[in-house]
Simulated scan of single mutants.
Amino acid sequence: MRIFISTGEVSGDMQAALLVAALRRQAEIKGYSLEITALGGPQTAAAGAQLLGDTTAIGAVGIWESLPYFIPTLQMQARVRRYLQENPVDVAILIDYMGPNIGIGNLIKGRFPEIPIIYYIAPQEWVWSLGSRNTNQIVNFSDRILAIFPQEARYFAAKGAKVTWVGHPLIDRITAYPSRHQARENLGIATEEIAIALLPASRQQEIRYLMPIIFQAAATLQAQFPLVRFWIPLSLEKYRADIERGILQYNLRASLVENKTDVLAAADLAIAKSGTVNLELALLEVPQVVVYRVSQITAWVARHLLHFSIPFMAPPNLVQMKEIVPELLQDEVTPEAIVNQVIQLFPNSTKREQMLTEYRQMRQVLGGEGAGDRAAIEILNAGKT
């Protein structure tokens, strides 16, 4: 059975890797042999897919920010077209990565209509207020949507899509994380230290717009609290030099490490950009402050021309459509605001305990273990019809 997967950016690469592992488990049970080709990244490749192209570093949020990736994205789509012409597949899987994957979905539907298309983790159209164009395209070219959020499933079903809610795959991923004690031992964190995870970037734009502000806030915190120390997981090797320069510039007591799981599991709290990592932290019961910024041009266009409006940005808040973690967006993202929010989440604080309670309530809404395997069964069945 031949499967094609398309995803992008660091979080999509992680989700694709989890899915590839689940597909291989379920294929073995069913007695299928698999050939999986993907647009993805190193995690997808390590899980057993053959990479058609690395898309982890050609994604951005925003209009201005996306321009440098326009031509590389078109080149990737052309590569997909040539590949599918020469190598017919049994099923195509799209994972998040809205703009490029809508293009690929329309390409497959128009040029290769015999290939079933399954959208696993559809773009968050159920959150954004940008009209119905993207939603209609996703519904029209998708033979089935495998939803990970209950509200996502309800939204696309109401729009006419065939939808199966499989639950959230991070539930399974979290079970493989080390215990807090083991993670702190792995990193050499002393019992009395307050370990703060800094997660400034998985995209180039975030290095520019977020990292300096987060590092300024970190410098203020360490000046006020001698027991504070920072841990920064490296999302992509290409960001190493920028982050190391930032650590030196702000004279931070910080360690840049490649093992993200240890950092998240060991942290007392986190300052994180908006993304999948917010949900990882929530499932690990690590209090966090979420921040996000785009360029002023993109922000102005979104507000005044596109009338962009969202109830929340961070995934933990989207699960139940309530503020569980504080969000600082655009002009609200200042060192002073970050420091103020972080101090309220120090150990033994009332706000910290409230957040932990709401994390546990949120966890109950995301479904039980086995989401990846449920998705894999749907995909294998679709490919054999």
Rank of each mutant, 00 (worst) to 15 (best):
K162E: 14
L187D: 06
N251S: 11
K260D: 06
V333T: 11
T350F: 08
I243E: 03
P347E: 04
L356C: 10
R79C: 09
A17R: 00
Q364P: 10
G188C: 02
D172C: 12
E280I: 02
E192S: 13
A158D: 14
S179P: 04
M321R: 11
M321F: 06
L67K: 10
G188A: 06
Q15H: 15
W64T: 11
T191D: 13
R144Q: 15
V301R: 01
Y69M: 04
I379H: 06
L146E: 05
Q26M: 13
V61H: 10
A219E: 07
D90N: 14
G110C: 02
S129W: 06
A22H: 02
L170F: 04
Q77T: 14
E336T: 14
I207F: 04
N106L: 13
G59E: 12
Y250H: 15
Q249T: 12
R25G: 04
R133T: 11
N134Q: 10
V127D: 01
P116T: 09
R144E: 15
N317Q: 05
P212V: 10
T44K: 03
T261G: 06
P200C: 05
I189S: 00
N259M: 03
P100G: 00
I148V: 14
H307R: 15
L18G: 00
I93V: 15
S255C: 08
L227W: 11
A78C: 06
M98F: 09
A22W: 03
I338Q: 01
